[in-house]
């Protein structure tokens, strides 16, 4: 037996799978609640898919939130920002559709809109003062500044 060999274990053994921690933004309820809040803070409770992806990318970390806010306020194109289209949000949209909180709106641009039921739930979530504090603060700040045009510029790397 040389030193690299692993000695045989001569007893019966088994593995137990331990539950794996899940990042909170990948929890279905967190994401759906935030999705509803995004819509709730958008103009006429409607948001295009493009815009949703950008906001969804930004809202999940404090650095990204600041980056997007900076961009929207000053319109200076960031050079080193890659906006990620994250599959989780697509699944969250599916679920929200399943619960009939939102519905699709096809057209130009295609987007989603809150249903009456979704609006009611969103209003309730918004009324819990101690929940989603940072997220709501961000949405409130960014609300009036997000223009479709800027979003396109951001996604297409158009240099203005």
């Amino acid at each position: 037996m040389n030193g690299t060999e692993i000695p045989k274990i001569n007893v019966p053994f088994s593995f137990t799978r331990k539950p794996i921690p899940i990042p909170p933004d990948l929890r279905t309820d967190w994401r759906i609640a935030v999705l509803l809040l995004i819509l709730y803070y958008s103009r006429s409770y409607r948001v295009s898919l493009k815009k949703l992806h950008v906001i969804n990318w930004a809202i999940r970390s404090s650095e990204n939130r600041e980056l997007l806010l900076e961009y929207m306020l000053n319109k200076i194109q960031p050079h080193d920002v890659v906006i990620r289209f994250e599959p989780g949000i697509v699944r969250a949209i599916d679920f929200a559709k399943g619960y009939q909180f939102i519905k699709m709106e096809y057209g130009k641009p295609t987007g989603i809109i809150l249903t009456d039921k979704g609006l009611e739930i969103a209003r309730k979530i918004d009324s819990f003062n101690d929940c989603f504090v940072k997220e709501r603060e961000f949405l409130r700040k960014i609300g009036p500044h997000v223009l479709e045009k800027d979003i396109s510029a951001l996604l297409n790397w158009e240099i203005s």
Partner: peptide, 23 residues
């Protein structure tokens, strides 16, 4: 992360009270 997890916890709590099924 902690804050978000707690938000989920609260949402679930309120959810059962206010009959707001999120999941």
């Amino acid at each position: 992360d902690l804050r978000r997890n707690k938000d989920i916890q609260k949402i679930r709590e309120y959810g059962s009270e206010e009959n707001l099924i999120t999941t």
